[in-house]
Design a protein around this nucleic acid. Structure first.
Lengths: 263, 263
DNA sequence: CTAGATTTGTTCGTATGTATC
DNA sequence: TGATACATACGAACAAATCTA
């Protein structure tokens, strides 16, 4: 494949960069910065696409791999999403909760969080959430809550513990959909994500999982029932007790890790 | 150019991945996830280094460029810093709360948050925080709480409303210092930051500010007194009432977070 | 100060998977 | 079904930075 750009230009550009900057930053970072500025300058909106990698490499007079690293930086920041195929490339993304939570998760991952601490928060905010959606759940949402309970039961009967736990957390995410308070929703969803991560890497004995699964099914069923009746007192009491029991189970999870990561 | 790797092996690997996963995630993302987990699992501290690129490529059975993309993701997230030369490579960086909150704030910037919604959360988490630090406040921290109350009073008497509000929030940040639960601390500090940003841009009538300042001084004084006595019931009741009153005042500002804040 | 060793940074060529037409 | 366009990935080589002797 012929190089469409002139090698002489490459040298010129690099010489120029070297002359201006005392210590040359990584080329991929310079390109990433320029792309960010370009996106802002051109007022690119979600759905717009950047030029493809080959074009960008030609524009900046560098190799594909360098452009790829720059695009990777934008992708991690949630600014763009890469797609393959024709009309693929880097597509501008809307500001998403995903990017925000990802950073938070890695931050908290290093702060030795245990279940007790997570539940000290969850126990209160989930009750607040539960109360806030009383009378706001649509028939479709109620139906999906009931369908979720059924899905959890099936996962439990299959013996798929991790999937059962994850599906049970989906129940609470459905409640979030009916809540207007976006800050509360963010915190609840974020904590649900934390718990999803944690159950992935910790395991407990089967009896615990099975008992927990049955408890969750009962609690969730009673909650849906209380929501249908619009019974505020019952919703608050049920969610409070549900959180209390969930915390007790979670604390029984085995926290031992097997490693050998850095050999 | 001869391909030194066996085509058969590559196909086998890909077939395996395709069989398990509906849509194959990018290999560099899988590696990045694994590295993140590994860093947390091995409790790597700032200053520790990851294996070099060649070793990682060998471990994951992939090319160097793929490993580089994964490392780039960690670098963008502020988890590691790349360095050239001997003893170079990916060095673990201290996790900064700044990086985590920045993304979150730009996300919340697009949401229609109002005082009622913020206080629906703050009302509960501040009480949880208040309870969690009972018996854990050092004499130095108690002294600083008292000094803070005095500073707030002086700001109020000077008529410096914004400074008074900001200083009053410092009171709650001092409480955070004594709390072990880092998730709870993060949420409380983040909300305090939201409120600090807001008082910059909103002002109410003087009577409101003055009455609020006097209320805060009384509440904070009573709280410190209850902490010194180790009176759990009083702490919980006082902080609950304090939040209730604070919310009422803040709602008189009748402002939303959407306009102007976070410029 | 120089020379060598180590490790990231960058490039080029190539091959493969994947989405669109 | 095939052709096309694009990202994804591999591998070899060299350049640049940085530490040590």
């Amino acid at each position: 494949m012929a190089t469409h750009y002139a090698d002489g230009m490459k040298s010129q550009e690099n010489a120029g960069i070297d002359a201006v900057l005392i210590r040359r930053p990584k080329l991929s970072n310079l390109i990433a910065d320029d792309l960010r500025r370009g996106i802002a300058r051109e007022r690119l909106k979600p759905g717009d696409r950047l030029p493809n990698e080959r074009t960008l490499a030609a524009r900046y007079g560098c190799a594909k791999g360098t452009v790829r690293e720059a695009l990777k930086a934008l992708e991690v920041q949630g600014l763009v999403k890469m797609q393959t195929g024709p009309m693929g490339g880097a597509e501008i993304q809307p500001v998403s909760v995903e990017a925000a939570t990802q950073q938070l998760r890695t931050y908290l991952h290093f702060l030795d969080l245990n279940f007790e601490q997570v539940y000290a928060v969850r126990r209160t905010v989930e009750v607040t959430l539960a109360e806030s959606v009383i009378g706001r759940l649509s028939e479709d949402q109620l139906a999906r809550l009931e369908a979720n309970i059924e899905a959890c039961e099936q996962a439990r009967l299959r013996g798929d513990r991790v999937e059962a736990r994850r599906a049970e957390l989906d129940f609470h995410d459905i409640l979030c959909e009916a809540c207007e308070n976006q800050l509360l929703v963010f915190i609840c969803r974020f904590i649900n994500g934390l718990l999803r991560d944690l159950v992935e890497f910790r395991s407990a004995r089967y009896e615990h999982h099975d008992a927990f699964g049955r408890h969750n099914a009962n609690s969730h069923r009673a909650l849906v029932d209380a929501y249908r009746r619009g019974d505020r007192e019952a919703v608050i009491a049920l969610m409070g007790e549900h959180m209390h029991c969930a915390e007790r189970f979670m604390r029984e999870l085995d926290a031992t890790f097997t490693s050998g990561f850095l050999g």
